[in-house]
Design a protein around this nucleic acid. Structure first.
Lengths: 221, 221
DNA sequence: TGACCGAGAATTGGATACAATCTCCACTTC
DNA sequence: GAAGTGGAGATTGTATCCAATTCTCGGTCA
């Protein structure tokens, strides 16, 4: 008996792909670093073939850069890139909210509310990983309601590209608390069917994150 | 001596990738059809390994669908998908025009004008392939001026996904002629630095194409 | 008749082996 | 010393082979 919703990847390339994603977000594979195929393949217990196929997926998502006969390198995201990603996210997520709000069902709204509870619970418990995944479920639960699979896929890739920075932002308690308010207000607007207000609130939500990150990154280092 | 700007693909996977793209846009590989790896690899004169890596790239772009242990299938694009792609293109291309127009250089505008000439020349000569590539250079030359590489990449993928339909649209002479006017007006607006007007014109340009295609596809079959 | 089963064929997934290319550094040459 | 050169070692790219999975199509049974 296997519990539903869970399945181990049916192929080695998929297993390797999630391992690679993990290694990138945790910073184990550092930006700019070359991905040495022999070493990684051995570590994952597979040959280089499935590893290379997984890398091709990540290349398409911009997570790694491929240079023929040189190999794969973990992508570096500078401040300009971060701004560009957030600018594109603004376009795509705003549109998805406009489409989603008139269509969203009561069940979906209930799920969003549950996700928010989980975000706050995990945040209070200092469970940053749990918070990150609940946060993701909240935002993508909303986008899902737009019923635009390609749009959602694009947003997903953009989120993945900036995962490292997002966890940096949420590492700070005061940021997390600000976020809870922003989330609740957005959910209220969604409940009322006020798409435009939700768009504005979520835009501010992102804006706050990106300007904070810009301060953090240009100041600190 | 190799002439500049020309280079044969340095790896088999890249060569196979362009061949695959070609086979898909020409309809040689039909939507829904399974990509039989042995047969294709033999036809291209390579082993299955580089073919599979090329397919992974196309999977990331949505041109093929991958099902573990089943293989790769050429993606099918129904009317709903077409609408979604155009809706997303509207968001991304409008933004890129807003960003590009204030930044565009005189050289870039001259290049756009040259592209338009080439579009009309090829169109008049019935050279649909030449027209398609000049048309592409025009639109992407404009997007390039926004200096947002990720945004441009997303638009590129969306264009690729609908290449088949675009050539269907341009097969009709009257459509081609309408397009010339639309192009010239858009270029005028760009020259005047009127980004918003260019956005509106280019939106109508796309809108006309997609509604025409919808009529064509739902009516004809 | 139709659902079900299973053996063989077809196809994909992955490991290994080897070829092609790049990187690095000692060495030569000017 | 600086620039160029050649080759050994490291790394990537691809072909081939075998294992794992799915598909096909008879036959069987209710």
């Amino acid at each position: 008996m296997t519990r539903p919703g869970f399945r181990r990847p049916p192929t080695a390339q998929e297993a390797v792909l999630s391992e690679l994603r993990l290694a990138i977000v945790t910073g184990e594979l550092r930006p700019g670093e070359q991905v040495l195929q022999d070493a990684l393949a051995e570590r994952f217990g597979v040959s280089r073939v499935p590893l290379r196929e997984a890398l091709k997926i990540l290349e398409g998502e911009g997570q790694v850069i491929y240079r023929p006969h040189r190999g794969y390198f973990v992508a570096e995201l500078d401040l300009g890139d971060l701004r560009e990603v957030y600018q594109i996210r603004d376009l795509l997520e705003s549109e998805s909210v406009r489409v989603a709000v008139p269509r969203i069902t009561a069940e979906e709204i209930a799920a969003l509310a549950a996700d928010l509870e989980e975000v706050e619970r995990a945040s209070a418990a200092g469970d940053l990983v749990g918070m990150a995944s609940a946060n993701r479920r909240f935002h993508f639960g909303l986008i899902e309601a737009a019923r635009m699979p390609r749009l959602m896929r694009l947003v997903r890739v953009l989120w993945d590209a900036t995962d490292v920075y997002r966890s940096l932002y949420y590492a700070d308690v005061t940021h997390r608390e600000a976020v809870h308010d922003e989330h609740r207000q957005a959910l209220d607007a969604i409940r009322r069917g006020d798409a435009e207000h939700a768009v504005v609130l979520l835009r501010q939500h992102r804006e706050r994150a990106v300007t904070t990150l810009e301060r953090l990154l240009s100041g600190g280092t």
